[in-house]
């Protein structure tokens, strides 16, 4: 329903713009009247989304850091496994063009609900990306490719992430053969006192 309303909201914006354009060509009447309609529509649509906190992108609700931060933290950690069974953290740039900021929440919310065959398809894709990125990093070609045009001036993700495989010797030496997905949970205050206070639950492992 929100998608339909959001789509109609943008369509209305386009119609209001079209009226201004037509009035410019004297097809409708005084231009000022239709500029007013356009301005009123843009103001109502954008404030409607923001004040109601119902997103109608591109009329966004901009909910940055809204609400109270939870005392409990949780995340998904995707790790690669080598032939000796050791877990290795994966540089966030390995997932490109996927952004960590969408991938991890999606893995948190949607991935556990998927049928096993679909989970295997996702895991195979991610394992392939991680393995290719490891090979690229090991060969000294860096990780990821989204800096291909702008280099260090490329736009970062909304969340900044550490570059795990940038330092010398930081790239896992052995090829990856499997993927594990963990859910991690912690109490913020406990973890502040002791960074190791994180509970970890294996959600998925591939290949089985």
């Amino acid at each position: 329903m929100l998608n339909v309303l959001g789509g109609l909201c943008f369509l209305g914006f386009l119609v209001a713009a079209l009226l201004v354009w037509l009035s410019e060509r004297s097809a409708l009447g005084p231009r000022r009247r239709f500029v007013n309609v356009f301005l009123l529509y843009a103001t109502f649509a954008s404030f409607g989304a923001g004040l109601s906190q119902k997103d109608a992108w591109p009329f966004a609700k901009w909910p940055m850091a809204g609400g109270r931060a939870d005392a409990l933290g949780s995340t998904i950690r995707i790790v690669a496994v080598d032939a000796e069974g050791a877990d290795h953290g994966i540089d966030y740039r390995a997932w490109q063009p996927l952004a960590f900021d969408e991938l991890v929440p999606w893995m948190h919310r949607t991935f556990p609900r998927l049928p096993r065959a679909a989970q295997d398809q996702v895991a195979a894709h991610l394992l392939e990306k991680a393995a290719a990125a490891r090979r690229q990093a090991e060969a000294g070609h860096g990780v990821g490719y989204l800096g291909r045009f702008l280099g260090p001036l490329a736009a970062p993700e909304f969340d900044l992430h550490p570059r795990l495989w940038s330092g010398p010797g930081s790239v896992p030496p052995r090829p990856f053969v499997a993927l594990r997905v963990y859910r991690e949970t912690w109490n913020q205050e406990e973890r502040r006192r002791d960074p190791s206070r994180v509970a970890r639950q294996l959600l998925y492992e591939s290949p089985r």
């Binding site: 923001g50 609700k61 850091a65 809204g66 609400g67 109270r68 931060a69």
Partner: peptide
């Protein structure tokens, strides 16, 4: 609007208590 609506989101969800030291600490830890 991003600034204004972000402020409104904060007030709607948590009131003026959003700016409390406890909530700021929790956001920073998060």
């Amino acid at each position: 609007q991003p600034y204004l609506f972000s402020g409104i989101a904060k007030l709607k969800a948590a009131g003026l208590g959003w700016a409390s030291p406890e909530n700021m600490r929790a956001w920073l830890l998060l």
